[in-house]
Design a protein around this nucleic acid. Structure first.
Ligand code: NAD
Ligand code: NAD
Lengths: 235, 235
DNA sequence: CTCACTTTGTGCATCGGTTCACAAAGGGAC
DNA sequence: GTCCCTTTGTGAACCGATGCACAAAGTGAG
């Protein structure tokens, strides 16, 4: 009996691979909607915007789910990737900080689509607490621990001002949360074992500006030769 | 005469370094506000949440701006990093798609702080066009090319629905833009020489879910042994 | 069954990035 | 000036990720 279960996946999928799986999943969902039954690594790679060898290596970390000469079964692969990412279960998400950004996130539909459900909104401002947004009542931050417990929240999205973020993160972690998505422009310090991912608009723009400057420099012939400190700032 | 100008920086700063420079800049600004005149690589590294050797190597790509035995002059380093990133000039940004997210971005203050200025808002919905948001008139997408030219826009933020993103990107690129920040969950295809950065909430959540699942699996003792395809989907 | 064709899965070379660890450089005390 | 202390800048080992290129595996025609 040849059981080739978890052949090449005793444990440990490379981080770079994990970051691409959602991309493959999105491309596969589009294909499933268009009625495709199977797809080759080449086609899927193009749809996901990656190299096909990389795609095959990524998928090989989950197991041997393709058929040589044919490709991958679309539905089956969707299931396997979803399972690997933990999307076959339902994740309750709390958004802390219901300002400009928090509201946009709360109203965002594409959120729910795949396993994630906004289960709570929390804010410190009494003006905001009690508002009804996207079918949810905004609750007071004092209720944080109780809300997390009661709603089974396991992922927290931080959308407070930068100054409040660390303090809120500390409470959230103390309440047992180990996965945080941070929108505030600060480096959060958390204990080992807590995963933080950050989304930082300002950093993205600065990276774009860097490359944009290089491009226009190249046009106008080299950097503007102003390598000197322009004003005599006390040094 | 020993001119050690652009000693170790003939051209080409590693991409990983570029992505961290904004982080250092942010930490340095905080220090400048608190009145610190100099900082060691160790202290700055802690503030930015990186290893100090990495920080020193990163900075060494810009030039030799530290003083052995002392550290780095805070103001001077702020200036050098800002210049390298292109933040000593002013960047005009256009936001295309003024829905939930576009509005939040337009109202976001931290945007302007460092060299970036929201110079135009564009939308296709006649209901939205003409609205006044954050002191700007929302203009019709038909005016895209004219607005980009007139306002000197060089970076475009895409906040349209996924279905419209590629089409808008094509027009934006045709209008001469080479830097795009994309919030729509699609893989955009653009000509070589155009830089795209994407911010994808859904991917971030999925990555968190993956790790969260691993953590709880470990608690409850290995994966739930459900390695089989649960329902007989036609394969 | 055999043969031609397609496509996967992976060994291997390569590359970019990280980290260690230390020589070289500078500051300040005396 | 000399000596000691601090901290930078970087060579070199290491590590993970990428991409080529191909053998192995499967399909389908005849
Ligand atoms: N708006 C954007 O487009 C945008 C973009 C990038 C980053 N950000 C960052 O996201 C965060 C939120 O931005 P915003 O524009 O929504 O700001 P905002 O001021 O509109 O909203 C912040 C909300 O957090 C609440 N808050 C403050 N302290 C709190 C606490 N201790 N506990 C709970 N809630 C608290 C406030 O009452 C407010 O409702 C900021 O850190 C900002 O830098 C925003
Ligand atoms: N809202 C969020 O928190 C959030 C989070 C992550 C990603 N996103 C993504 O950001 C994008 C915008 O999200 P949203 O919630 O603001 O959506 P939305 O529907 O509220 O806003 C989209 C806006 O784009 C405009 N638009 C449509 N087609 C256009 C075109 N061809 N040219 C110009 N404008 C056009 C619409 O009129 C609308 O005003 C979506 O792709 C969404 O998936 C949103």
């Amino acid at each position: 009996m040849i059981r080739r279960l978890s052949q090449a996946r005793e444990r440990g999928i490379p981080e770079a691979t994990v970051a691409r799986l959602p991309l493959y999943l999105r491309a596969l969902n589009g294909m499933a909607e268009r009625g495709l039954a199977t797809v080759s690594s080449e086609d899927l790679a193009v749809a996901a915007g990656v190299n096909s060898a990389k795609l095959r290596k990524d998928l090989s970390h989950l197991g041997s789910y393709g058929t040589r000469g044919v490709g991958y079964d679309v539905e089956y692969l969707i299931y396997q990737i979803s399972r690997e990412l933990g999307l076959t279960q339902d994740w309750a998400v709390a958004i802390v900080g219901v300002g400009n950004l928090g509201r946009a996130l709360a109203n965002y539909g594409g959120f729910v689509s795949r396993g994630f459900r906004v289960a709570a909104l929390l804010d410190a401002d009494p003006e905001v607490v009690g508002d009804r947004i996207a079918g949810l009542n905004v609750e007071h931050i004092d209720e944080l621990e109780a809300v997390i417990r009661r709603r089974g929240v396991s992922i927290v999205v931080l959308a407070t001002p930068a100054a409040a973020a660390q303090q809120v993160a500390d409470r959230v972690v103390a309440a047992g949360i180990t996965s945080i998505l941070n929108f505030a422009p600060v480096v959060l310090s958390v204990p080992e074992g807590v995963d933080i991912r950050k989304v930082d608009l300002s950093i993205e723009l600065q990276i774009l500006a860097f490359h944009e400057q290089r491009k226009t420099d190249r046009m106008t012939g080299g950097p503007a030769m102003a390598e000197e400190w322009p004003e005599a700032v006390d040094l």
